[in-house]
Design a protein around this nucleic acid. Structure first.
Length: 683
DNA sequence: GAGCACTGC
């Protein structure tokens, strides 16, 4: 069954008549009972409950298939941890996991979702006053902590998948440790991890008790190459055909680093297939990566045609986010595209690096979900030993502005003294403090400013976007800025498949503004809005509403396809827009539009993004003011090759070159006028 | 004339 949902990704809807449902209900309950009892964790239920009662902090290392995520909350419920209106909260790094696990547990408990068992994720809350087992994303619990620092509605908080070490997990654990020290109130903390090494967590919590629960995975044979491979793409190709021609049936999963690589391998496989005898050509390739439209992502779940073998070419998305049925063979070249952040340059970069040991293990595990499998690592065993044990925690390779703003809002003033599991570098903290100070979020003595800092902390946005909204209400263009920051907060709305590059470029021109990408994004958003909301006059009845929705959905989908727009991104932007709009209304900001006065809007962009301004150099490239970096306008920008003198931008990324993305033309003089504290008249 | 792994509020 597809394990993806939400945000227009992939959803499955099982429809069943009520009658069939009733006659199956008993059999289904019996089946669930047997499945639960056969889980490795079932036999240690009493012991686990004792451990939780005895220890305020407990670490549970549970291998894949142990059932820890679904069972432990139910154990705690039945042991009385939800008395007096308190709940058990379980965090997940991903939305899909929170939803699917909650649905499963509701079914196991025989209750309707949203009653005793529920979930809460951004834009989708399925809980009620009677919810006692609540699955949620870690980011959401962090937001809850802003309103209720002691998390007083919970008797137990379970941080699941802690080994993934997302920023949210790390901050959450830091906060919980802090409140544990204060010994109030008696909140139990359970850290669940799939990594075999619980030592990091145990030491962090002063030698906390750790227990181990066996998993249930099928054996996976790991095979290494004898010698290092010069070209891992070619090696992967050879291995695909080796498996195809020599191994028994079963689908193949290949881990590659990005869209381009996946598309290249797809072409190469087709080429080589043509050279094989007809009888050996029964092989189909299916790509999957996050920016692929959802209809195409769905293809990985469909079985290959009769007698064919399926080769799934995937990025990291298949490591944890998507579980593909039928995989018996995994090919792991041992590389991953990783994002890192250089605080000194204020620059992000995307680089291809070797995986960690934990990542290699996770990948090979994908071959053993339904039966014994094989994993081909395209490097020698000696190389495996040299890999890092685990992937560098995100908090050590990201911009900390948001983390610091949140911590300040939670009353943590001494960021340098805050007890992180792993401390970010001092330089990274200093840089982000400076940034927040320049945005006016912090006072001279590094306290959250009032009201600006507090307002910024309330908004679930990058701090610079939050500030832009506050300024926009003064510039009378909050309407436009709301759309802009929503669009800047999602993955690119332009989708360009390689084979239709020219077509997609022509389509994108319809929306282009000569002033830059921000206004272009507004144009796209408004065009989509028109399609989804404008309607000829029809009476408002429930039936009409349904027909209208279905119709406009269809029109929207076609429009997306014709214009090479990523519908998922646009919908996401609309969700963010309405959420943020609600927030700024509550804050009492004036939501007005500048109408056609785009000069006013661009001045507001300059006032908001003054930290990210760049000036054209004689050679044609640009020099960023703040960091002195020499950069180019990204080819995806409408201002690419446009030779404008001065711009503001939102991202600086290093790939093959140093690029700025999301760029708008401004006048240099505006900077000295609107951000005099940063731009003196010296130049 | 380039390319954007993946999450999350």
């Amino acid at each position: 069954m597809p394990s993806m949902a939400q945000n227009g990704r992939v959803t499955t809807d099982f429809k069943q008549s009520n009658q069939a449902h009733n006659s199956n209900a008993f059999a289904r309950r019996e089946e669930i009972r047997q499945q639960r009892e056969s889980l490795p964790i079932a036999s240690v239920k009493e012991r686990l409950i004792e451990e939780v009662k005895k220890h305020d902090v407990l670490i549970i290392v549970g291998e894949t298939g142990s059932g820890k995520t679904t069972q432990i909350p139910q154990f705690l419920f039945s042991a009385g941890f939800c008395r007096e209106g308190k709940s058990v909260g379980i965090t997940q790094p991903r939305r899909v996991a929170a939803v699917t696990v909650a649905k499963r547990v509701a079914e196991e408990c025989g209750v309707e979702l949203g009653q005793k068992v529920g979930y809460s994720i951004r834009f989708d809350d399925r809980t009620s006053g009677v919810t006692r087992i609540k699955y949620m994303t870690d980011g959401l619990l962090l937001r809850e902590a802003l309103l209720d620092p002691y998390l007083s509605r919970y008797s137990v908080v379970i941080v699941d998948e802690a080994h993934e070490r997302t920023v949210h997990t790390d901050v959450l654990l830091g906060l919980l440790k802090n409140s544990q020290d204060r010994k109030f109130p008696p909140l139990k903390l359970i850290i669940m991890s799939a990594s075999l090494d619980a030592r990091v967590f145990s030491e962090y919590f002063g030698g906390a008790r750790a227990v181990h629960i066996q998993g249930r995975q099928h054996p996976v044979d790991i095979l290494y190459t004898l010698y290092p491979e010069k070209d891992y793409v070619d090696a992967a190709l050879v291995t695909i055909f080796q498996i195809h021609l020599e191994e028994r049936h079963g689908d193949i999963l290949v881990f590659l680093t990005g869209q381009e690589e996946i598309e290249a391998v797809e072409r190469l496989v087709q080429e080589r297939l043509r050279q094989l005898p007809e009888s050996n050509r029964k092989l189909v390739t299916v790509p999957i990566f996050s920016s692929l439209p959802s209809e195409q992502q769905m293809r990985v779940f469909m079985p290959a045609p009769d007698g064919h073998r399926k080769v799934v070419l995937a990025t990291n998305i298949a490591e944890t986010s998507v579980t593909i049925p039928g995989i018996k063979f995994v090919i792991d070249p041992g590389f991953v595209k990783a994002r890192s952040y250089d605080p000194a340059k204020g620059m992000e970069s995307l680089i291809i690096i070797p995986t960690s040991k934990a990542q290699a293990l996770q990948r090979s595990g994908r071959a053993g979900r339904e039966g014994p499998g094989k994993c081909f690592r395209l490097y020698p065993e000696s190389e495996f030993e040299k890999l890092e044990d685990s992937t560098k925690p995100e908090i050590k390779r990201c911009n900390l502005a948001n983390v610091i703003l949140q911590l300040k809002a939670l009353g943590v003033d001494d960021i340098f003294g805050f007890d992180f599991i792993e401390k970010p570098s001092r330089a990274a903290i200093v840089k982000s403090l400076e940034h927040l100070f320049l945005l006016g979020a912090l006072t001279d003595d590094c306290k959250l400013s009032d009201p600006v800092g507090h307002q910024m902390a309330r908004l679930p946005l990058d701090p610079i976007y939050s500030k832009a909204l506050i300024l926009a209400s003064q510039f009378n263009c909050l309407e436009e800025m709301l759309i802009t920051v929503a669009m800047l907060s999602v993955d690119s709305v332009f989708y360009a498949p390689r084979e239709k590059l020219d077509e997609s470029r022509t389509a994108a021109k319809c929306f282009a503004s000569p002033d830059g990408d921000h206004i272009t994004l507004i144009n796209v958003y408004r065009a989509a809005e028109d399609l989804l909301e404008k309607r000829k006059w029809v009476p408002h009845t429930e039936r009409n509403e349904k027909i209208f929705k279905a119709k406009s959905e269809k029109i929207f989908k076609r429009w997306c396809k014709e214009n090479f727009i990523n519908g998922r991104s646009v919908r996401h932007a609309r969700d963010i827009h309405s959420q943020i709009r609600g927030h700024v209304e509550q804050m009492g900001l004036r939501i007005t539009s500048c109408g056609d006065d785009m000069l006013q809007f661009r001045r507001c962009l300059a006032a908001s993004f003054f930290i990210n301004a760049a000036l054209k150099q004689p050679e044609g490239n640009y020099r960023a003011f703040g960091t002195g970096q020499v950069v180019q306008i990204h080819p995806s920008s409408v201002l690419f090759q446009s030779k404008v003198e001065c711009v503001v931008f939102n991202e600086m990324v290093q790939t093959t070159n140093k690029y700025i993305r999301n760029v708008t033309r401004i006048e240099y003089m505006w900077l000295t006028e609107l951000a005099p504290h940063y731009y003196t008249m010296q130049s």
